[in-house]
């Protein structure tokens, strides 16, 4: 009885709390969220997202094409060397040819001077600007980030990259975009210095895939996802091997234990 009355005494307080919450909801008071200044990208069905799924090599190949012809004019990729592309999306000969088309500053030579030579497999992707200051000076004060690890460096990963590249829209009512910036709801703050870079037919793919904006964005996102995690395919393969091996070992050890113990578990001790 005493317990019941204690509970009874508390009930109005609980009801009052619930009432206050209900009132807040009913009056439609504004709920302010921390993510209000950026649109979070949806989850796209990437073909490499599954636990055992590998990267689409053809997509990486097309993505490199997009990077080279569109992104590379502003963005460096200084952690990816030409040799990294070998056997991923290109043959050794193809990559050698691509590297040789570039000119690399090297030195010193026998006379102690620096000289330029054609690129080699071991060279990293050529950078568009000599340093950060040059990059900012050429881009109205904004620094185009290095893209080697960009998929790991941004919340949402490749979903974010795809959404950002295809997500240039008109600004909402009441927002005036500063001169030199562009409205993109996926970018934190909504105003990004990079202009829309991908347009239908912007590149030509050597496998004759129609180069629509979405296709190019998907391929370059896959390429950047690979660049940020080149060990991705090996990692998943190794994970499967280890899980399978240890799974079998567990079964074998379980059987061995039961087998060894069967003698002791089934023996009968008789005292006379």
């Amino acid at each position: 009885m005493a317990a019941w009355s204690r509970l009874g005494g508390r009930l109005p307080a609980v009801a009052a709390t619930a009432g206050a919450t209900g009132l807040a909801l009913a009056t439609g008071s504004t709920v302010l969220r921390a993510n209000d200044d950026a649109l979070h990208p949806p989850q796209f069905p990437w073909s490499h997202k599954g636990a055992l799924s590998s990267f689409d090599a053809a997509s990486i190949r097309r993505g490199y094409n997009v990077y080279r012809n569109v992104c590379a004019s502003c963005h460096s990729m200084n952690r990816i060397a030409y040799r990294n592309l070998v056997d991923v999306a290109f043959s050794t000969e193809e990559v050698k040819e691509m590297a040789e088309e570039t000119e690399v500053e090297d030195g010193p030579n026998d006379e102690g001077l620096s000289f330029s030579r054609p690129g080699r497999l071991s060279d990293v992707m050529p950078a568009p600007y000599a340093n950060e200051e040059a990059a900012r000076y050429a881009n109205n004060g904004a620094l185009p980030p290095d893209l080697s690890l960009i998929v790991k460096a941004r919340e949402g990963g490749e979903d974010y990259i795809f959404a950002l590249l295809t997500g240039y829209r008109d600004p909402p009512e009441g927002i005036s975009v500063r001169e030199g910036l562009h409205y993109n709801p996926y970018f934190a703050g909504g105003q990004i210095a990079m202009a829309r870079a991908l347009y239908d037919g912007g590149v030509e793919f050597d496998d004759l895939t129609p180069a629509t904006t979405s296709q190019m964005a998907k391929d370059v996102s896959t390429f950047l996802a690979w660049a940020a995690e080149p060990e991705h395919d090996e990692r998943k393969k190794m994970g499967m091997e280890w899980v399978a091996t240890f799974g079998l070992l567990t079964v074998a050890m379980f059987y061995a234990k039961r087998f060894k113990w069967s003698v002791f578990k089934t023996r009968k001790i008789t005292f006379r």
Binding site: D36, D37, Q43, P45
Partner: peptide, 26 residues
């Protein structure tokens, strides 16, 4: 400004479109 409502609208469109956008792509 109406950024919140604008983003809510595009979030709704995105969730609906995300699965369909990749279907016609290679």
């Amino acid at each position: 400004h109406c950024t919140g409502q604008y983003l809510d609208f595009w979030k709704c469109v995105d969730v609906c479109a995300a699965k369909k956008i990749f279907a016609p792509l290679k």
